[in-house]
Structure formats: structure tokens, C-alpha cells
Design a protein around this nucleic acid. Structure first.
Lengths: 194, 194
DNA sequence: CTTATGTTGGAACGATCGGTTCAAGATTGT
DNA sequence: ACAATCTTGAACCGATCGTTCCAACATAAG
């Protein structure tokens, strides 16, 4: 007997990710997906159950990559850490071979139409992004880099909004230079005085 | 002979707007639209040609309403004008009977899949929103409220990003209070010194 | 009333959708 | 070689999609 799966999970998930990334959930057809995954219809359903199961696994993978990337950023000050995090997504979004925009932001745009598990993983992803930002801000308060009266929740929402803008605005004409200068403006929201 | 249309354009467009607003372009079916418009399939096609023609007209109407609302805001200083504009969309988005989110932002999320005319009117809408913001900022420079070295383009992108965040973040859990406090943070991007 | 136009509901079109099934071929361990 | 498993391609299902067409009805001007 020989029981091993002959295709690579990471490869087929990557293929499906490109499709969902560009088309969203509803508009991505099974034929689109099989073509991009290099996998037969039968194997897709055997491995992932149905379209929603595939979407769930793909978006979870996408989320973990983005969150991992966010966690990698380190800098001397928390302020520089947030700024570096934002700028990282400017440069790594522009000029990539990947689809434009952000799969997670796109999923949130159609969140009311997503099936339950898809909706859950989308909400979880944004919640964890915000948790990372909140964590940095709280560390800054503990550090003394930020006065304790600072509105950490509001700042976390602000920087999450900026992050999503960085992903979205290129689709409506923003250049990398536009975004980098936008980040400079957005960082002014960081309270100056201690 | 009697040549007048017996239904009200504004009414049927409003009905279609609610559907496109909530479901986007692709996921909105003709049956969804006719039901919400109170119009027969035949009349829809006679009046609007096809689904794309209807979408085009609906989004154009939506855009003109949003732009009109943006143009109404007046305040003593340009800074207060921007802030009032942002806060206006916080309160008028929350607690409304209208669908959540923003039809235009949603259209931009699926912009790569939109038919040509739909894509064009979506890009035009965001461009004109940004033009309004840029106009206020340029007026501030002319006024002396903003130093002439200020990066007006970057600030316009920034506030457009905040505006879109105000429309989107409620769908992932942001409350009206969160958004109002976020606006306070975002407004700090306005350069302080003259 | 007659005539012209607006409107309707339903039937029908071909196409595509997500999902299931199955027989044939490819692969791997023993 | 054998046997077990993976994979494939294609056929097929019922449902829905956007779109077209048409006969029946409503409306209003002449």
C-alpha cells in the first residue's frame, strides 16, 4: 500500500490564492480554481470538501503569512516599528507579481455574502492584525514611548485603516511614492509629546 | 399617442442601489434587482439596456450623492472642514437603514472584474472625491492655513484612505465611537505649524 | 372608440454555476 | 508481479445566470 498525497498542498493553495485574491469568493469559479491550482476537479473536492472549505483554508494561509510578516518587523522605537510595518507593505505590494489589492480586504468587502466559515476567518484575520497593532501601542505605553492617556484603541483602528488603504489605493491610481508620503502623514497621528 | 414613462427613475434606481450596495455587481442577480426596484424584467432591460447599463447609472447616481454631501460641508477653517466631512460620514453611515459599507468602495474592491463602463465610473468617483479633498487642502495653502511646503497630494491620499476606512471598518466591528476617536487621531496628520 | 405606447408576467434561450460520480491510468510500497 | 491508493478527465446533475421575446393588459391622447 502507498497512501501519500501526490501533489503539494502549498502549491495548490498558492494557485487558489491567486484566483480568490483577484476575483473574490463568489466570482471565482471551480474551473478558474482547478486551472490555477493545476489540480483536477475530483482531487479538489476530495482534498477540500467544497468551495467554501478551499476558501477557508486559503484565506487562513493568507492571514498567517500577512500576520507573520507583520510580526517580523523590528525597530528601535515602537513608532519606527509601526512606520516600518506600513512601509513594508508599500514596497512589497507594489511591483510584485502577485495580484493587486489584498485578499483579506477584498474578503471583508464582500463579507456579508460570504459563507459562515469564510466570514469567520476573515473577521479573525482583521482582528488579529488589529491585535498586533494594539500590542505594539501597548508596548509603547509600557515603554514610556507613549503617554498612558493615549487612545490606544483609536490609534489601532487608525493604523489598521492606513494599512488597508495601502493595499487598496494602488488599485485606484496611487503610486508607491504617493503611499510612502501618505505613511509619513499618517504617522503624525502618533502623539508627539510624552 | 402617449409617450411618458410610468415609473419613477429615482425610485427604481434607489431600489437597484440597495442591491448593488449590499451585493456588489457580479453577485447581484437580475431577479434581486427587479424585486428591489419593483420593476418587471422587461422594463428593466428596455430602460437600462443591460445589467452593466443599470450599474453604471446607479453608481453614477451614488457618486453624485456622495460628492454632493462632501461639497455641503462648511466650517471656519479648512482643517475643521475636513474633520467635519469625515465625521459626517461616521454619523451618517452608522445607524442608517441603508446597507453597510460603501457602494463605491465595494466597486473598487472588485474593480478588476467590473465591465468597462462600470470600472470607469468607479474610478471617476474616487478621483473626484480625492479632487474635493485636494481642493480643500489647496485652499488651505492659499489661505495661509497650511504652509506651502505641505505635501498636498499625500494628505489628499491620506484623508481619502481615512474616508474609505470610515466606510469599511464598521463591517469588521468598529463602533461609531471607535471611528470618531479614529478621526481625531487621523486629523493629527494635518501639519501643525505654519 | 381607436390607436399608440408603456408595462407586465412568463416562457424560453444558451451558458455557466457548484457539486457528484465513475471508470481508466499513474504511482508507489511490498 | 501484485495490490492499494492517488489522480485524472469527462460525463452528468439540478440550479441559476443574463438576456430575449411575445402575447396580454393598462394607460392616455386623438
Amino acid at each position: 500500500m502507498s497512501g501519500k498525497q501526490q501533489f503539494d498542498d502549498a502549491v495548490v493553495i498558492n494557485g487558489a490564492m491567486n484566483v480568490f485574491w483577484q476575483k473574490g469568493f463568489a466570482a471565482a469559479s471551480i474551473d478558474d480554481l482547478t486551472a490555477a491550482m493545476g489540480l483536477s476537479r475530483s482531487s479538489l473536492y476530495k482534498r477540500f470538501g467544497d468551495k467554501e472549505g478551499l476558501f477557508h483554508e486559503v484565506l487562513a494561509t493568507y492571514n498567517s503569512r500577512v500576520l507573520h510578516r507583520m510580526g517580523l518587523v523590528k525597530a528601535e522605537t515602537r513608532r519606527q516599528e509601526i512606520e516600518a510595518l506600513l512601509l513594508d507593505f508599500v514596497t512589497n505590494t507594489h511591483g510584485s507579481q502577485k495580484p493587486s489589492g489584498c485578499m483579506l480586504v477584498r474578503a471583508c468587502a464582500e463579507i456579508t455574502e460570504l459563507p459562515p466559515r469564510g466570514k469567520a476567518v476573515a473577521l479573525d484575520g482583521t482582528e488579529r492584525q488589529r491585535a498586533i497593532l494594539r500590542g505594539i501601542l501597548n508596548a509603547a505605553v509600557a515603554n514610556g514611548e507613549l503617554r498612558s492617556s493615549a487612545d490606544v484603541e483609536a490609534l489601532a483602528w487608525h493604523f489598521l485603516g492606513v494599512l488597508q488603504a495601502i493595499m487598496n489605493l494602488p488599485q485606484i491610481g496611487a503610486t508607491a511614492s504617493d503611499l510612502r508620503r501618505m505613511v509619513v502623514s499618517a504617522m503624525l497621528a502618533w502623539p508627539q509629546a510624552i
